[in-house]
Design a protein around this nucleic acid. Structure first.
Lengths: 219, 219
DNA sequence: GCCGAACCGTAACGTACGGTACGGCTGTCG
DNA sequence: CGACAGCCGTACCGTACGTTACGGTTCGGC
């Protein structure tokens, strides 16, 4: 909430060539983490270092541009027209949960979060803010209207959408992200993600569903 | 689960002087993140670089020793004798939740997790494994007996202790750790932590408490 | 065909930092 | 007291890498 408003919609000022360069940098970031060098990026992208510096200023500028470029690509957000019955609400929640789990377990997300976390320490740039803005906060922005609609339709009960969202977030993500970031090998198959999404959704409905008497399940 | 068994009980092979050096390194780590240099550590600890290298081998060795040293300090674990009624179970859960929130929001934990995450990328050492083993997995090891005791006493219902633990973990931590690691300023006062711990515990009991008809609350 | 801009590839520079070597100081043992 | 081990402070070395500079090439406009 206290984050600076990182403007994220500047991905249009990029030529195709520049996007290709950033894609190369992104691939390199996934492969080598924060270890990437300007020389390696230039070689991978078949461009000169001089061009890199002209376009992005310095190494941090390149990193920031790369993170923002990836962020602009993930900006797929079908906000789901107001489905008013329990079935469609459940489906929406499961979809959100499933999508989120897929995102945070992807190589790209892990790599990006790692460098952002590393840079958040000695905070020269706002990589952490950018990642947060396009990750957790973007998710909240997309999910909250669904929650509100569910409440309007009498399907959900909660006093604060933000708190309800954070509960859902916790039920979905649990320890997955931190374990992956710390290098734990965590096999997340398509099936496991689907199961987790369903479980989290049922748990959330057990806590915030309007019908009394619901129970969560373990399996 | 697939982590290497990092042996953690070697903190006894350290002289007082070495502990002091590691404390200096730890303080520096909190202040400067992964940016710390051997020279800075030597200066802060008033020792020579030669000594650092003799004692810890190389930079990674120093980092690993520092992380393990901090881990050995946190090893306070009053496992709570089996309190069999709902009140004591609730109190235990709230205490675990509160303690965990305090840990993950501390400067030290944030700094340590940041460098561990950074190193997990190009995995030369096992910093991530060490942090994970002394954080999330140590918590599970301490909490699971409590959950099992609660089930034995007929207070809790769940089929798998690991899954139940992860649900509790998610309800407690939510988005706190990742936001802090990414540099989000998140004010966690003593009161807020207490409230969150109570909320998470009530939600967990709503999902896994044995008495039917329970409901979670939002506040 | 000619010019300038943009860009590629590479060489070169400066610095920061990990790692090593060495002289000097202190305490301990014989 | 002398020998010696451990350690401090510092100078030093090698390398990696960020950053800059420059010659050569391509390409659109005239």
């Amino acid at each position: 909430m206290l984050l600076a408003n990182a403007d994220i919609d500047n991905s249009q000022a990029l030529t195709e060539r520049q996007k290709a360069v950033l894609d190369a940098a992104l691939r390199l970031l996934v492969e080598e983490g924060d270890h990437l060098t300007m020389t390696a990026v230039a070689r991978r992208a078949s461009c000169s270092k001089e061009t890199l510096y002209k376009w992005f200023g310095d190494r941090d500028g390149l990193l920031t541009a790369t993170v923002q470029w990836q962020a602009s690509k993930v900006r797929v957000a079908p906000v789901d027209g107001k489905g008013l019955d329990l079935a469609s609400l459940t489906a929406s929640l499961e979809r959100f949960a499933s999508d989120w789990l897929k995102v945070i377990s992807s190589d790209t997300s892990i790599a990006l979060n790692r460098v952002a976390v590393g840079h958040a320490g000695s905070g020269k740039d706002d990589l952490g803010a950018v990642v947060l803005e396009n990750g957790r906060f973007a998710l909240a922005k997309r999910l909250k209207p669904v929650l509100e609609a569910g409440r309007q339709a009498g399907l959900l009960e909660f006093s604060d959408a933000e708190t309800a969202f954070r509960t859902f977030f916790g039920l979905v993500a649990r320890d997955v992200q931190i374990r992956l970031l710390l290098g734990d090998r965590l096999e997340l198959t398509e099936a496991a993600i689907g199961g987790d999404a369903a479980r989290a959704t049922q748990q959330f409905l057990a806590l915030h569903g309007a019908k009394p008497g619901r129970r969560g399940s373990d399996s």
